[in-house]
Amino acid sequence: MTHPTSAEIAARIEDLYGAPLGGLEAHAQDQPPGMLAALIASHNDLAFAEQSISFHRDRLLRLAHPDRSIGPHEVSHLLDCTRRLAEAVAVRDAQAKTVTAVLKSLGRTSAPKSPAASVPALPARPVPHASTAPSR
C-alpha cells in the first residue's frame, strides 16, 4: 500500500488553505488550536517518520554490508535497527492514513456574500402576555 509523502500532504494543505506551508505554520502559532494546527502537526509527524525511515534504512544497510562481519554484538544492533525501522514505517503509515482521511473530509468553501444571506432569519414568535390576575 502506498501512502502520500509528507511533500504531497504539504501540497494538499497549501491548496486547501491557499498559502505556503511555512506561512501557514507561522499563522497557526498565533492562533488558538484548531484544524490548521492539527494538520500541520500531523504533517510534521509524517515528515519526521519519513526521516526516521531513511536514517534506519541507511543504518541497516551499513550494518548488513556484505564486507562486514556479523557477530553477536552486530546482531543486537541489526535487531534494534530493524525494530526501529518497523516502528517508523508503522508511524508513517498511520500518520499518512489519518491526515489523508482528514484532508479528504475538508474542502475549500467560498465566503458567504453577506452574513444575513447565509443564515435565514427565523420568524418572530408571539410572546405570551403575563397575566396580572391571581391564579386559582
Score class of each variant (00 low, 15 high):
residue 26 A to F: 03
residue 59 R to T: 15
residue 132 T to H: 15
residue 98 T to H: 09
residue 29 Q to T: 14
residue 128 P to T: 12
residue 94 A to E: 10
residue 103 L to E: 03
residue 35 M to R: 14
residue 74 E to Y: 05
residue 101 A to Q: 13
residue 133 A to Q: 09
residue 27 H to Q: 14
residue 40 I to P: 05
residue 53 I to M: 07
residue 26 A to R: 11
residue 44 N to Q: 14
residue 123 P to M: 00
residue 105 S to W: 07
residue 100 T to G: 05
residue 95 Q to H: 06
residue 98 T to R: 10
residue 116 A to I: 12
residue 87 E to H: 14
residue 111 A to K: 04
residue 77 H to W: 15
residue 94 A to T: 08
residue 120 P to R: 09
residue 120 P to C: 03
residue 73 H to N: 11
residue 29 Q to F: 02
residue 78 L to Y: 05
residue 112 P to H: 07
residue 102 V to D: 11
residue 32 P to T: 14
residue 76 S to I: 08
residue 5 T to G: 08
residue 27 H to E: 15
residue 113 K to S: 10
residue 61 L to G: 13
residue 103 L to R: 01
residue 34 G to K: 00
residue 90 A to H: 04
residue 114 S to G: 07
residue 29 Q to H: 12
residue 5 T to Y: 05
residue 25 E to D: 09
residue 50 E to M: 01
residue 43 H to E: 13
residue 18 G to I: 01
residue 54 S to M: 06
residue 79 L to W: 07
residue 10 A to G: 03
residue 128 P to Y: 08
residue 119 V to N: 08
residue 69 S to C: 00
residue 29 Q to A: 14
residue 109 T to R: 12
residue 58 D to V: 06
residue 106 L to R: 05
residue 81 C to R: 04
residue 114 S to W: 00
residue 99 V to T: 15
residue 121 A to E: 09
residue 23 G to D: 13
residue 49 A to L: 03
residue 113 K to Q: 12
residue 98 T to Y: 03
residue 48 F to N: 13
residue 75 V to W: 00
residue 109 T to M: 14
residue 133 A to H: 07
residue 7 A to G: 10
residue 5 T to P: 02
residue 112 P to F: 09
residue 36 L to F: 04
residue 33 P to F: 02
residue 84 R to S: 03
residue 75 V to S: 01
residue 69 S to V: 09
residue 33 P to G: 00
residue 131 S to I: 10
residue 10 A to L: 01
residue 115 P to F: 08
residue 68 R to Y: 02
residue 67 D to W: 01
residue 106 L to D: 01
residue 30 D to G: 15
residue 20 P to K: 04
residue 114 S to P: 03
residue 30 D to S: 15
residue 8 E to Y: 06
residue 109 T to H: 12
residue 104 K to N: 15
residue 68 R to W: 02
residue 103 L to N: 01
residue 56 H to D: 02
residue 65 H to D: 13
residue 38 A to K: 11
residue 85 L to W: 08
residue 14 E to C: 05
residue 82 T to Q: 13
residue 2 T to A: 10
